[in-house]
Simulated assay, not measured.
Amino acid sequence: MAKKILFINQEIVPYVPETDLSHMGKALPQVMQESGHEIRTFMPKWGNINERRGQLHEVIRLSGMNLIIDDTDHPLIIKVASIVQTRIQVYFIDNDDYFTRRQMDKDENGMDYADNGERAIFFARGVLETVKKLRWVPDIIHVQGWMGAVVPLFIKKAYYDEPSFANTKVVTSLFPNQMTSDLAPNFKKCLEFRDITADTLTKYNEVFDATELAKLAIDYSDGVIAAHQDTEADWMNYAAEQGIPTLAYPGADFGKAYEEFYEKI
């Protein structure tokens, strides 16, 4: 059965260098589109993306909203481009402070940016607010990459009564840990939004490392996929312990397994 699937990707080739994550960022939407599903695809507008080469342009009607994070207004800018070979349209979440003047999740010295937690929150909320404006109602939201790890929480606790997301199922793909440092101490406080309160987050440590972030994503997902053969077994075991449906790494020919998993949840 054809579904409407929203892909929230941390990386997509050809806009950023080839990695396992960026490869799947392109391959998964492409496979699902070719299988007859209706898709929308989002990623951050990382500062190393060449806008001219990628033919990105701003979508004025979707831009202009301010998102408040840590008591500061951050303007949301939406850009769009198409991957020519696949006819996949990609929406980019942009902001001068969080993305334009940076590299990706790591700086020029290979160190995680200190405000990566805030950037992840801005990205997640930016995607969800933009989907609302598109008046498009996804059946499935599929998150790939830790930068989207807060999306399941927001869907289930902050946007659950929005018509766009009321009946949406959330799938999280887990990849090997890319984080080299913990998120900033203010991350947990910055997560508080609408019905997400300090009480919502009491089970989590005050400082989030990669495992704590994975647990947060898992707890609010309807299904969890090991998207790589080296995905941390402890994370998948945690998902199983919570009674959440899981899919073991299906190998390179993943399309049918993913479609069956969508139906299962």
Rank of each mutant, 00 (worst) to 15 (best):
A158K: 04
Y249C: 08
E241Q: 14
D230I: 00
M1H: 09
Q30C: 07
M65Q: 15
M1T: 01
D105T: 04
L213I: 15
I88A: 13
A239G: 09
T86C: 13
A166E: 13
T72N: 08
N95W: 02
L28W: 11
K26Y: 14
P14Q: 11
E259V: 01
I244Q: 01
N95C: 14
A217Y: 10
L62S: 13
L153C: 06
D182W: 02
V224I: 08
M236L: 13
P245Y: 01
K106Y: 10
A27M: 11
K156A: 08
L28K: 11
K264H: 07
Y15S: 06
D139V: 08
D73A: 01
F42M: 14
A217K: 07
I68Q: 10
Q178L: 08
G255M: 01
C190G: 03
K132C: 07
Y113C: 06
A210C: 04
G251N: 02
S22E: 00
P176R: 05
D115N: 13
T202D: 05
V171F: 12
E260N: 11
D161A: 07
P138R: 03
W235P: 00
I155K: 07
I225C: 02
L216S: 00
R40S: 06
K45G: 08
T172A: 01
T197M: 03
A239M: 04
R135M: 09
V16F: 01
E11V: 14
F154L: 14
R101N: 14
K106E: 09
A114Q: 14
I93K: 09
E58S: 12
T130E: 02
L62K: 07
L216A: 02
D195K: 15
T172H: 15
I196V: 15
V59T: 09
D71A: 07
V150D: 04
D199R: 12
T19S: 12
H142L: 12
E212C: 02
A166W: 02
E232H: 07
M43C: 08
K203W: 04
V207D: 04
E260C: 05
R125F: 01
P29M: 11
E162Y: 09
R101S: 15
E34I: 08
F92Y: 05
D73M: 00
D20M: 06
A233I: 01
M43S: 03
L174D: 00
Y238A: 03
Q178W: 11
K169W: 05
I155A: 05
I39Q: 06
A252K: 03
E58Y: 08
N237V: 00
Q242I: 03
V207M: 07
K256W: 01
P176Q: 02
D253N: 11
P185W: 07
A81Q: 03
S181R: 14
F7N: 09
Q30Y: 11
I244G: 07
V127N: 06
A149C: 03
N186Y: 12
I69Y: 05
P152Q: 14
M65K: 14
F175Q: 04
D73T: 00
G25W: 07
I93V: 13
I83S: 11
A239N: 05
P245E: 04
L28H: 06
K4H: 12
Q103S: 14
K106G: 01
P152N: 10
Y160V: 06
D230G: 10
A240T: 09
M147L: 08
M32H: 09
N109E: 14
T168W: 13
I60F: 11
G126E: 10
K256I: 12
S173C: 15
I60A: 09
I69E: 15
D139S: 13
I88M: 12
N237Y: 07
G110D: 05
Y204A: 13
L128Q: 08
A166Y: 10
